[in-house]
Amino acid sequence: MARAGVTVERLVRVAADLADEIGFDNVTVTALARSFGVKEGSLYSHIENMRDLRVKVALLALAELADAAGAALAGRSGKDALVAFADAYRDYARKHPGRYAATRFPLDPQTAAASAGVRHVEMTRAILHGYRIPEPDQIDAIRLLGSTFHGFVSLETAGSFQHSADARGTDASWSRILDALHTSLTHWSSA
């Protein structure tokens, strides 16, 4: 019988909180069991294994990030939409580094197709529509945006920019990168 207070939803939320504290890759069933004051084995009535837990945290994080990005995009187009979308990703990664790392966890195709990851692609396509990028080129543009956002955010959250003596900080660089992306998307040439 399941211990009172432990549900799949609570387990996943506690795992996500723990991921933000100690890193997504450092979350273990042992640490979670300690959080609930139960034995490890009792958690397996709620999750199949560690991969199942990681998938559940990834799905939660993808949904949270899609909600944040969707709210940021509401009523915006063009460069405003691009900046709001990018800032939503960056803000989420800064506030929830473990959850953000979970959004990169590889999902099987069926799980990915049913996840909020689809909403991320749809929102990106909506932004690209405002730049009049044709359908065949959209996947390249989606990959450009995703790799740029993720690359910058990953380096920033890892502390890789702290060595710079630039008094402007990373915000100035982020703004310049978004300007460059806007210019690139505005002047997109089809292959």
Rank of each mutant, 00 (worst) to 15 (best):
M1R: 12
A2Y: 11
A4Y: 09
G5N: 09
E9G: 04
R10P: 03
V12A: 02
R13T: 09
L18A: 03
E21H: 10
F24T: 00
D25K: 15
V27K: 05
V29K: 01
R34W: 08
R34P: 01
S35I: 00
V38N: 05
E40A: 11
I47M: 10
M50A: 11
R51I: 06
D52P: 02
L53W: 04
L53H: 05
L62K: 05
L62H: 00
A63M: 04
A66Y: 01
D80H: 11
V83R: 13
A88Q: 03
Y89R: 11
R90T: 03
R94D: 02
K95H: 11
A101T: 09
A101L: 11
A102D: 00
F105H: 13
D108N: 14
D108S: 09
P109M: 06
A113H: 05
A113R: 10
A116F: 01
A116S: 13
R119A: 15
H120L: 12
E122A: 15
M123N: 10
R125M: 08
R125N: 14
L128V: 06
P134C: 12
P134L: 13
P134H: 12
E135Y: 10
D137S: 15
I139W: 07
D140W: 14
I142Q: 10
F152A: 00
F152K: 00
L155S: 10
E156H: 12
T157N: 05
T157E: 01
A158C: 06
F161K: 07
H163M: 09
R168H: 12
G169T: 09
T170L: 03
S173D: 11
W174P: 03
S175M: 04
I177K: 01
L181W: 08
H182V: 06
T186H: 04
W188K: 03
W188Y: 06
S189W: 07
